[in-house]
Nucleic acid binder design. Structure first.
Lengths: 197, 197
DNA sequence: ACGGCGATGACAGTAACTGACATCGCTACA
DNA sequence: TGTAGCGATGTCAGTTACTGTCATCGCCGT
């Protein structure tokens, strides 16, 4: 074809984020995105399965970072610790892209349709973590629950991180939330740790 | 108009579930569903926001049951206990509809598009639980984390419940998973609960 | 020069949704 | 009893997300 610019996916993602911020997700057509990126609508769908997917990393770099962090952790750590450490790695991953992650999160938060996709990615992340834990010898039920708890903790930590500008590192937020979970799990009915049994 | 049958939404949901099981979600058109239910396509979209929504209860009865269960629980219970008790109520709710829930879960499991919607509903459930916990005086961060953990636990329990025919009550599965989470949260690096610290 | 390969454009087609308007049947009320 | 109004539906045209198919262009190795 006529000479074409390299990295069509990258330009499409960039164009899409700009347009979504400018006029909103629903008010932006795939054709709009394609035109700003200098390609046709058809090319958009060659790189992304659907309109939402343009906001999500095709290489799944964050998930790989999480899995790698768990795989590299010392043998002695218990499952929930591993999951937490993985999610902290996810925090570090996003910390470098704070501004971009913030804009992106804003767009997603404004669109249920995009939230669904985000949730699906997080579910996939949970499955990946569970698989990695099992690989390291954690029994299936524990692995599943630990992964689910880890991702849940991450979601709340992320929420705080984007909402509160005075919040610390995302990884720190994650560790805070995990500590909260530990405290909750240890709580006994009225009179913590006392007589109740 | 010509005399019309009552409960169009109900017949649409029924028709949709049948067709999804018979030929699959993607192979079923909204027109197909509408025709089997004896209405037009337009009427379908008057009752459901989109094609996926037809599989989800418009009254959100389960969520209400969960919130009610938490609201009715004794004052003395700690947050994670409340969340767990709420999810057990969700289990009881689905237990009566086991067969229907099973078929529905099968269809959803086969379609990422439907999984996304399910995940969104669960996220809404998590928010509702968190809100209810805050209403009962639980501080925001604890409420959020407890709700997230509760729903996570529920997901894994539900997974087991549908996959394993020999599994007990869903509510029992939920309590099992919650116990697993508690054990995980208490685990210390190598030598559980012992000298490590 | 040539042939194949990868990325793209061009174009037609399906199906999910939406908006606007007409119609029908029931209910309340004069 | 008739009629005005309301709620649920049908009709129809239109937008947009997404897919299949085929032609074209530039590059790369032989």
């Amino acid at each position: 074809m006529g000479r074409w610019e390299p990295d069509a996916p990258g330009r499409l993602t960039q164009a899409a984020l700009e347009l979504f911020v400018e006029r909103g997700y629903e008010q932006t057509t795939v054709l709009d995105i394609a035109e700003r990126a200098g390609v046709t609508e058809r090319t958009f769908f060659r790189h992304f399965a659907d309109k939402r997917e343009v906001l999500f990393d095709r290489r799944n770099a964050m998930q790989e970072a999480v899995v790698a962090a768990i795989a590299a952790a010392p043998e002695t750590l218990p499952p929930l610790e591993l999951a937490g450490l993985g999610m902290a790695a996810a925090g570090d991953f996003l910390e470098g892209r704070r501004e971009h992650a913030g804009r992106r999160a804003g767009v997603i938060a404004a669109n249920p349709s995009l939230q669904e996709r985000e949730l699906l990615k997080l579910a996939a992340l949970s499955d990946a973590v569970a698989t990695e834990l099992r690989q390291r010898g954690v029994p299936a039920p524990e692995a599943g629950v630990a992964a689910e708890a880890g991702v849940g903790v991450f979601r709340r930590a992320f929420e705080r991180w984007v909402a509160d500008p005075s919040a610390p590192d995302l990884a720190t937020c994650v560790r805070d939330s995990l500590a909260t979970l530990r405290a909750l799990a240890a709580a006994r009915p009225r009179g913590r740790g006392a007589v109740t049994r």
